[in-house]
Amino acid sequence: MNFSLSRATLIAEADLVGIAGERAVCDRRGVLYFPDLRLLAVSDLHLEKGSSFARRGALIPPYDTGATLLRLQAVIADYQPRIVVSLGDSFHDGGGAQRMHQSFREQLEAMMAGRDWFWVAGNHDPEAPADLPGETVKELAVGSLLFRHEPSKTRVEGEIAGHLHPCARIVQRGRSVRRRCFAGDGGRMIMPAFGAYTGSLNVLDRAYAGLFRLETLVAYMLGAERIFAISGSMLRPG
């Protein structure tokens, strides 16, 4: 198999970003990969969001879990990580894991097999997901990095968080483009939400107040083929 070749190509082509001294790939599909640690981080999967809505009477299509897992499977196949960190809100609610269709459960377990898998507790899923392998943690420290769901109020170098679902907006030649993004200032990184039904919140919203050094803030906007690194000064609210 030539998976190592494809992995090498991926990393060589992608932009490497520095976070508190660690090198990481901001993948355009919305995952963060640390080649030196062989660690893949993904945030806010919100699995079973569809059925969570259905439970309350909004019968939105039940295909979100399948769609999200399929995309996750693809990045895991590409990078073959040793460690996977799911940064919280992996399930849209506490009953999500139980509601998950058997076929999806099997699909998920297949990609978890043979690697360390951490479920970071999120506000939507504070408890461990029912009947699934993997270790549930409040937060996870790896080298100089700290993985947690909600970004801490005080500045923490090397913190990788989710929760806020960042997106960024630019205006070029009178047209506005809004995309999900990684938001980082070299010290901290907030990851985009990965789930198929997850919305997003502009990095200039007040929910992000105090999280970044504004002068070095960069939004890594997700493109169809690549990541676009846009400096904070070019971003627009809304």
């Binding site: 070029q172 083929e225 690194a229 846009i230 070019m234």
Partner: peptide, 24 residues
């Protein structure tokens, strides 16, 4: 005009203004 082109332009502007090290 494709959104991607606009993003590309914006990203290029950043590179021009800040130098390539900013995007690493």
């Amino acid at each position: 005009e494709a959104d991607e082109t606009l993003l590309m332009d914006a990203a290029t502007l950043v590179e021009e203004a800040m130098g390539p090290e900013m995007t690493e």
